[in-house]
Design a binder for these strands. Structure first.
Lengths: 319, 319
DNA sequence: AGAATTTTTGTAAACGGTTCCAAAAAAAGA
DNA sequence: TCTTTTTTTGGAACCGTTTACAAAAATTCT
C-alpha cells in the first residue's frame, strides 16, 4: 500500500504538501495540487485511517452496542441501525456494531447503547470515557432517546374504551424490562381513570405464547373483549387465537399492538398499533451523539418521541 | 486517557514491559506483571487501537458493504449481519457497516460485499487491495457465498408439479438482478422438462404488487393454479389475492415463496418456502474472509448453500 | 524599488503503540 | 566457582499521518 511519503516522492513535493492536498486543497497551488493528484492516482493511494486517528486522537468511529438478550434479528433493530447509519454517513463517521458476544469494546469517538442491563457494561462504557447516548432506556445520568411508552399504551387503551369495550386485557412481556414497566403503567392509569378492572398477562415476546394464552381466555369466556398488547408479535398471536375460535375482528375481539415496524402491515387484518418512528429515533441518537462529541462531553438532555396511534382493521372497521 | 507510557511510569517499568503484559503476560515475571496490572487498573488504561493498527498494519476491522438499492431494513439483512457478527466476535474482529450512502470506504482488513452492481464500487474495492468475499452474487474473479437459486426454484416447481398442478405461474422481481436470472432459469428448465407452458410475471418486490397482478389473473380465469414466487413477499401478495377471491389455499391456489427468514411463519396460512440459511451463510462469509486474511490473499473457492424446501400449508394441507 | 504583508511550501516533532535487538539477571552446566 | 544458556527487562527506531512553526516565494503597499 502506497503511503503519503510515496506520493510525496513521486510528485517531488514534501509530505506536508500531500497532506494539505488531502485536507485543505485550496491552500496549495494549482500546479502542485495536480501533480499530487496524479501521483495519488498512479500509486492507488488510500489514506491510512489509523495514522490519522492516532495523531488526531479521533477515530471517526461510532459504536452501536445492541446488548439485549432477545432476538436481535427483529426488523426493529435493522431500522434503528439504518437510522443511525443515515445520519453518521452524512458526517463521515463509520458505524461499528457490537453485540453482547463481543470480547472487547475498544476505541471509538462515541457510543449508542441499547439493552444495557446491570452494572457490568456500565463499567466498561464509563471506562472508555466517551460520549454515550442510550436508546430505549433511561438510566441514571445518561442522555437518551426513547419513545413515550406510557402515553402510547394510554392512547391505545383509551382508544378501545372509546370503542365501547369494557373488558380490556393487557398482554405484556417480561416485567423487569423498564420499557415494560411504563407500558403497564399507561394501562393501569387509564383503566383506573375509567373505573375498569385490570387484567394483566405476561409472557415471552412471541406470537405463539400470546396465541396460547388468548386461546385459554377464549375457552373460558367469549364475551366481547379488547386486548392491548405490548408488541405487534403478541397482537398477532391474539388475532390468530380469535380467528381460530371463529370470532370476528374487531367486533368481538379488538387488538392493538406496539412498534409498527413490519408485522402490523403484514398481519391480516392489519393491526392497530403504536408506531415508533425507529428510523428517526436512530437518526436523533446519532445527531445527539455527534453534538456531544463536538461539545466535548456534558449533558445534552434527552429526546422522547411520541408514538403514533395508527388505527386499522384490528380495532375499527374502515370502509 | 491514560497511555501505555503513563502505566509504565506509574508501575516504574519500561513501556516494553507494559506492552508485554498486554500481549504475552507469561513472558513477564509475576512481580512486575502485578505491578503493571495494578497501574492499569488505577489509571483506567484502555489500549489505543489506532496506535496498534498503525504499527501492525492491521485494523482488526471487517467492513460489510450492503449496496442494494432495495429496502435494506428487511429481516434478511439483519440475519446476515448477525451471522457475520457471531463469527467475527469469535476472532476478535470488529464489524463495520457501510451502506451505499457512505462517502468513503476506508481502511480495514477485509470486506464482505453484497448487492454490488456496476463497475464503480468494484474499482473502489480493488483499490483497497484487501481480501473480499461477495455475498449473494458471483462476479468475475471474486470468492463468494451464495444460495443455489436455480436448484431452489427447481425444487419448488417440481413440488407443485408433483401435487398435480398443471398451470404454474412464476412471479419474479427485476430480471436484471443476477440472482433473479438463475431463479427464472430453474423455473424454465423444470417447466420445459415436463412439457408445461411458461407463465412469467415480473414486478417489484412488494406484496401489493403481487396481490394486484394475481388479482388480475384471477379476474380472468379461476382454474386451479400454482404460483412459484421469487420471494416470500410476493407469495404473501398471492395469498391475499386468492383469499380475496374466496379461493381455497392450497386446493385452488398453491403458493411457494423464497427466503424463509421471517414472513413465511407469520403469513397465514404458513408459506411453503425455500429457506436460505442466512445466518450460517453470514458465518461462512466471515470464516472465508478471515481465512483469506490469514493466507494473505489468493483465491479460496466459493461456497454455495442449498436452500431447504419447507413444505407448509400454502401448498399442502398437513394434518 | 524596497519594505511589509500574504501566500505557499517545507522541516521537525509528535501521537501511542510494537518490533528488533541488546543488556542484565537468573538458571543451568562444567 | 566460572562459563554457558536461558529468561527477563529495557532502549531506540519506526508505523503514516498531522500539528506547529519556520523559510521561501509571491503579492501588495508606499
Amino acid at each position: 500500500m502506497a503511503t503519503l511519503s510515496d506520493v510525496a516522492r513521486k510528485a517531488v513535493v514534501s509530505k506536508m504538501t500531500v497532506s494539505r492536498v488531502i485536507n485543505h486543497p485550496d491552500k496549495v497551488s494549482d500546479e502542485l495540487r495536480n501533480l499530487v493528484y496524479a501521483a495519488m492516482e498512479e500509486l492507488n493511494y488510500v489514506p491510512n485511517f489509523a495514522a490519522r486517528a492516532l495523531v488526531q486522537n479521533k477515530t471517526q468511529v461510532i459504536k452501536l452496542l445492541i446488548l439485549e438478550e432477545m432476538d436481535t434479528t427483529e426488523p426493529y433493530y435493522m431500522n434503528l441501525l439504518s437510522g443511525i447509519a443515515i445520519e453518521l454517513d452524512k458526517h463521515h463517521y463509520a458505524l461499528q456494531l457490537v453485540t453482547r458476544n463481543s470480547h472487547t469494546v475498544g476505541s471509538c469517538d462515541g457510543l449508542i447503547v441499547t439493552g444495557m442491563r446491570g452494572e457490568d457494561y456500565e463499567a466498561i462504557i464509563d471506562k472508555l470515557e466517551r460520549p454515550v447516548v442510550l436508546f430505549g432506556q433511561n438510566t441514571r445520568g445518561y442522555d437518551f432517546v426513547d419513545v413515550d411508552n406510557e402515553n402510547g399504551i394510554r392512547m391505545a387503551t383509551r382508544h378501545v374504551i372509546d370503542l365501547g369495550f369494557e373488558k380490556i386485557l393487557f398482554f405484556g412481556i417480561d416485567l423487569n424490562e423498564p420499557f415494560m414497566y411504563t407500558r403497564v403503567k399507561g394501562y393501569k392509569k387509564t383503566m383506573c381513570l375509567h373505573y375498569l378492572p385490570e387484567h394483566l398477562f405476561f409472557m415471552k415476546n412471541s406470537s405463539h405464547a400470546a396465541q396460547e394464552i388468548m386461546g385459554r381466555q377464549l375457552a373460558d369466556n367469549r364475551e366481547r373483549v379488547a386486548v392491548v398488547c405490548a408488541s405487534d408479535r403478541l397482537a398477532l398471536g391474539v388475532v390468530r387465537a380469535a380467528q381460530s375460535y371463529g370470532l370476528r375482528i374487531p367486533e368481538d375481539v379488538a387488538v392493538t399492538g406496539f412498534d409498527g415496524v413490519f408485522l402490523d402491515r403484514i398481519c391480516s387484518p392489519k393491526l392497530t398499533t403504536l408506531r415508533q418512528p425507529v428510523i428517526e429515533m436512530g437518526q436523533e441518537c446519532a445527531r445527539m451523539l455527534l453534538k456531544k462529541i463536538d461539545l466535548d462531553g456534558g449533558r445534552l438532555g434527552s429526546h422522547i418521541f411520541q408514538p403514533e396511534l395508527i388505527i386499522r382493521a384490528s380495532t375499527k372497521r374502515t370502509n
